[in-house]
Design a binder for these strands. Structure first.
Lengths: 198, 198
DNA sequence: GATTTAACGTACCAAGTGGTACGAATACAA
DNA sequence: TTGTATTCGTACCACTTGGTACGTTAAATC
């Protein structure tokens, strides 16, 4: 990245580790219930060090969100980019949200989105950007499937896209709340069944 | 109710008004974002007075929830008890969650349920009781409609009941988040359409 | 009038929050 | 060696939270 010989005292703060610890914490619990103090303790970092690196809670959450987007949320966009028929795509999404072990405690993005009003400006902007790009990607996907012939364009692609985003969010919220995974899958399957028979 | 001649200083605290103010506050914002101090200010009540009456935040929230259940949530149970065909019942529920002005800022019950882990024991118990009775009522409704012949029992009544509870919750969360009501109704209509064509 | 009973509310509490002042520490450059 | 640049972390800040101690006030009872 950047390795110009530095001048002052070398930094000891491990940015990657700190982000990783914070991400895990936000992932396991509700971000609103994870304090900066807690993250500092977990990561073995002093509060001023954290402020120097991320500029405050908002900056840290935003950095975590960006990291989470590239490390986890990219899976969803990958699924869409495979251009499979809706049946397979929805099945893959159902597996991601309803079965995948790593989503057992829900989703950082959806958790942040649920408490959007509590977020700082940078994090909120990040959440809105991800939300918008998810809707965009899904809209493009359904339009493409319509053009390919294996999707009836009855509910407009944009409506279906929002619908899918919300249903995945519901499923992940249920998982975070500790609902029985089978029940989560049942609900999601029922929700997606609305898209199969127009 | 009870009017035995009292002994000490007469109380000046208006329980009804206090509950009303608190309910409005919890309804408008997220209950987790409404502090006792704020309620005291809004209601013109001192904190110790509030503690004397309700025993603390948990007691107040529980009292508010109970009040809300009888004043607002009863509408939902009324809809179910009319024994209309599913199409009409689902339409009524859609209107309640997606159109009714009084649900414009969401629902106290679902807001509390969303932040269940933050609640005190009494309030949490109240939330769980309401949730359970909603599922029970919906299950009974769908079983009755199945017996009456205008409902195919393909997805089990219990599954459908949970599904409906969750979809209404999703719609009300969307309204609380300020989504366009038309979009909320579209999502809910799409979700309920899964129940019409098995 | 004196006593008892109970609600009143000011003024406090400890705990926790996000955030920062500031002197010590550690590197490179002159 | 001295100076400069930069990070370090202890110890604090102001503020908010839910909750309470306690002296005061107002009624019924004696």
């Amino acid at each position: 990245m950047s390795d110009p010989p530095k001048r002052g005292r070398p930094r000891t703060l491990d940015t990657e580790k700190t982000l990783d610890v914070a991400m895990r914490a936000y992932w396991r619990q509700d971000p609103a219930d994870v304090s900066l103090n807690a993250i500092c303790t977990l990561a073995g970092v002093s509060k001023p060090a954290l402020y120097r690196q991320f500029g405050g809670e908002d900056g840290l959450m935003r950095a975590v969100l960006d990291r989470y987007a590239t490390q986890v949320l990219s899976d969803i966009f990958d699924i869409l980019s495979r251009d499979m028929p809706p049946e397979d795509t929805l099945a893959a999404l159902t597996h991601f949200a309803g079965t995948d072990d790593k989503m057992e405690t829900g989703c950082v993005f959806y958790k942040m989105r649920a408490g959007k009003h509590r977020l700082g400006p940078m994090t909120r902007a990040g959440v809105e950007a991800i939300d918008a790009s998810a809707v965009t990607a899904l809209t493009a996907y359904f339009k493409a499937r319509h053009a390919a012939g294996d999707w009836a364009g009855d509910p407009p692609a944009a409506t279906v896209a929002r619908y899918v985003v919300e249903q995945i969010g519901l499923a992940l919220s249920q998982r975070a709340a500790g609902h029985d995974p089978q029940e989560v899958r049942d609900t999601l399957a029922l929700a997606f069944s609305a898209l199969r028979r127009p």
